[in-house]
């Protein structure tokens, strides 16, 4: 090959070359789950409950910054760029779980927020059905609402290697131990752990 040919070959080789390298950044794994499914359980008052359905329609899971953790509505969704961010149908009675990977920006996070919204399914936001103390039970909430669960300690995320794991447990067995609307009781039985 002539010198000109070699030069041309090398030049074309350089221009045809391309590459992409990706280094992951901060990622937070979030699991939303109920208590282990059981055929029946007893309330704190001793009443037998058989849950057929404890459905939550979830539109999104959000890690919320400390400075906006107590504001109403969706202010700082950390998962805005996340694919597969809802909607999900989670049946706590059936042992369902949601696993979500969030890609939050650096910051200090104080709460996990679950947006409960059934509109994407053309359904109610939350629904309970089954039998309680031998009687049929049906309870639902049509309007969207948020569950805001405060983290045990603020989550400081500032390094690309930060990979916190958050587990939100909504214990459906304790829903009948509290007074209030279904949304208020869901809020009271939800706990989060971080590691």
């Amino acid at each position: 090959m002539s010198e000109r040919g070699r030069f041309l070959g090398a030049f074309l080789g350089v221009v045809a070359l391309h590459c992409v390298a990706y280094e992951p950044g901060i990622e937070a794994e979030v699991r939303v789950a109920g208590a282990p499914a059981t055929v029946a359980f007893y309330t704190g008052g001793g009443e037998r409950v058989e849950l057929e359905e404890a459905v939550l329609h979830i539109d999104g899971v959000e890690l919320r910054r400390c400075e906006t953790a107590w504001t109403l509505g969706s202010v700082a969704r950390a998962h805005e760029l996340e694919l597969g961010n809802g909607p999900w149908r989670l049946d706590l009675a059936g042992g369902g779980t949601i696993d979500e990977s969030l890609i939050p920006a650096p910051g200090r996070y104080c709460a996990l927020v679950v947006h409960v919204d059934g509109r994407a399914f053309g359904s109610v936001s939350a629904r309970l059905s089954g039998r309680m103390a031998g009687a049929t039970m049906n309870e639902s909430i049509a309007d969207p609402f948020d569950l805001v669960i405060v983290l045990p300690a603020p989550l400081e995320l500032d390094d690309p290697g930060d990979r916190p794991m958050l587990e939100l447990r909504i214990d459906q067995r304790k829903l009948f131990d509290h007074e209030g609307t279904l949304a208020e009781r869901l809020q009271r039985v939800a706990t989060v752990s971080a590691r």
Binding site: H18, V20, Y22, E23, G25, I26, P160
Partner: peptide
């Protein structure tokens, strides 16, 4: 935004 980096050539 989450400090992930992509390098392209």
């Amino acid at each position: 935004p989450n400090l992930a980096e992509e390098r392209r050539f």
